[in-house]
């Protein structure tokens, strides 16, 4: 079953066109990795799906509903959560307060207790202000905060950015638990090996367009690299 359909989406910042006629579908329970060089339009695309960026044209359909004109906070109520680039925690709020503000009316398995079980490193830090956390802890809170809304679609924008490799491993171990429980995930990841390992399908963007799309298992690294750098446009 298709959960998300993006149809010929156009996103602009003034005269700059960041996303050009992008279309794709994500099925229920799929894990899709969005890859591409800096400036390829990945973050803008994610923000448009989450409702933080108003697209210039095209449609976003979620579970049969056209959500293109629906504001971000109401998309959260429908079951879309974005872990934004740079984490964007509320620095003056404690870990627990950061999690609790995201509590939604949607029912599901996620609450403060279950989030802290998946991210045990946060347990001793729950009353510490988010500003005083390490990068890895902050990323865990950002993911946990998104989970608190009990999303059906989880959008993860560069969760490994600026983290030590060991911490990235820990974050991805927790994510695998989340994915295994049936969440639908669209993630942006710069590390190709990791993206191909976690995701079932890969979408590669170049200069605002989708240049390659396919099952992670069927794609060989060379083709992805060529598409990534735009060396030779695949047919």
């Amino acid at each position: 079953m298709t959960l998300v359909t993006v149809e010929s989406l156009d996103c602009r910042y003034g005269l700059l066109q960041a996303v050009r006629g992008v279309s794709f579908e994500i099925g229920q329970g799929e894990t899709v990795a969005l890859i591409g060089a800096n400036g390829a339009g990945k973050t803008t695309l994610m923000r448009a799906v989450a409702g933080a960026h108003r697209p210039h044209g095209g449609r976003v359909v979620f579970d049969g509903i056209d959500i293109t004109r629906i504001p971000a906070h109401r998309r959260v109520a429908l079951g879309i959560a974005l872990v934004p680039e740079g984490r964007r925690l509320f620095p003056g709020l404690t870990v627990e307060e950061n999690l609790r503000v995201a509590t939604s009316r949607r029912r599901g398995r996620w609450n403060v207790k279950s989030v802290l079980e998946v991210f045990p490193l946060l347990q001793p830090r729950r009353h510490v202000a988010a500003a005083n956390l390490s990068g890895g802890e902050q990323q865990a809170v950002a993911i946990g905060r998104a989970l608190m809304t009990n999303p059906r679609l989880l959008l993860l924008d560069e969760v490994s950015l600026g983290l030590a490799p060991v911490v990235v491993d820990a974050v991805y171990r927790s994510l695998t638990d989340v994915i295994r429980e049936g969440a639908t995930v669209l993630l942006v990841e710069q590390d190709l090996t990791r993206a191909l390992k976690v995701a079932g399908r890969v979408i590669c963007m170049l200069e605002g367009r989708v240049v390659l799309e396919g099952d992670a298992a069927s794609l060989d690294r060379d083709r992805v690299v060529r598409a990534y750098f735009g060396l030779k446009r695949p047919a």
Binding site: A50, G51, A52, P71, A72, H73, R74, V76, A77, A81, L82, P84, R88, L89, F90, V101, A102, S104, R145, A146, M148, T149
Partner: peptide, 9 residues
């Protein structure tokens, strides 16, 4: 902006 993304109007 981040508050909107966790469902706050």
């Amino acid at each position: 902006d981040a508050a909107e993304l966790v469902g706050i109007d």
